[in-house]
């Protein structure tokens, strides 16, 4: 809600506090204005732990008669990122498409997550410092129909987690990621943005100069 709307709500809450109780649900407490937050008792919901999630998933599998191996289960919990609803949706989608025995590959194809090897291929192309190779990988990603925003977030995970990239390099890369993400939201072309990101990442990883300067 906008700040104005929240302010208006503040009055309403006070006036009708005798007859009405309010329950508010939000994702970020920081976006609730202070006067409103102070009028409520707060309950914080932590993201579900992996254990609870997998218990629930296994329960559903048992009720629905699905066959889920342990590898698929761990894939499911990683692609859903602690979001149980999403996990269940993926599970249902996979069950509808592929029948009762579900492998981790099926789950990945339903969820729209890009397979690890595709992301790694692009990443290693960036590492190699060969522009044409990266260009080829980017073309391939687009032709395979993987969404660029998804590619960005998975590539981002790899880069942030790898130990052999210096903080300085990471900062350079992440800055470009943020810019490209904004451009994508505004409807820019996926191929060009991804190519720009790949080229920038390559320059950062191989310590090439960021700007091309000629003679000046």
């Amino acid at each position: 809600m906008t700040e104005d709307a929240q302010n208006a709500l503040r009055r309403t809450m006070e006036t009708y506090s005798k007859v009405t109780r309010f329950f508010f649900i939000c994702n970020y407490i920081s976006r609730i204005i202070e006067p409103l937050a102070s009028r409520c008792a707060k309950f914080r919901f932590k993201p579900l732990t992996e254990e609870i999630m997998s218990n629930r998933i296994l329960y559903i599998c048992k009720e629905e008669g699905l066959n889920l191996d342990s590898e698929a289960l761990s894939t499911l919990s990683s692609i859903s990122q602690g979001d149980l609803r999403r996990a269940i949706t993926y599970l249902q989608g996979a069950a509808r498409l592929f029948g009762s025995s579900i492998s981790s590959k099926d789950l990945i194809s339903v969820s729209g997550v890009i397979p690890e090897d595709v992301v790694q291929a692009l990443f290693s192309a960036c590492r190699s410092g060969n522009f044409d190779m990266a260009d080829k990988e980017v073309k391939n990603v687009i032709a395979e129909g993987y969404p660029a925003s998804q590619m960005l977030s998975q590539l981002y995970d790899i880069i942030v987690e790898s130990d052999d990239i210096s903080d300085d390099q990471k900062a350079r890369i992440c800055k470009k990621f943020a810019e490209a993400d904004k451009c994508l939201v505004e409807g820019a072309d996926e191929y060009l943005q991804l190519l720009d990101v790949a080229s920038n990442t390559m320059r950062a990883l191989n310590n090439m100069p960021q700007e091309y300067s000629f003679g000046n």
Binding site: G187, L192, Q193, M208
Partner: peptide, 29 residues
């Protein structure tokens, strides 16, 4: 971009790819 890239050094390719992305984004806006 594709046509121009054919005849460029890899150094320049980075730069041109960046500007292509930049102007395409502006074009959308």
């Amino acid at each position: 971009l594709y046509e121009l890239m054919k005849k460029l050094d890899s150094e320049l390719k980075h730069e041109i790819a960046h500007w292509a992305a930049y102007y395409e984004h502006r074009l959308r806006l």
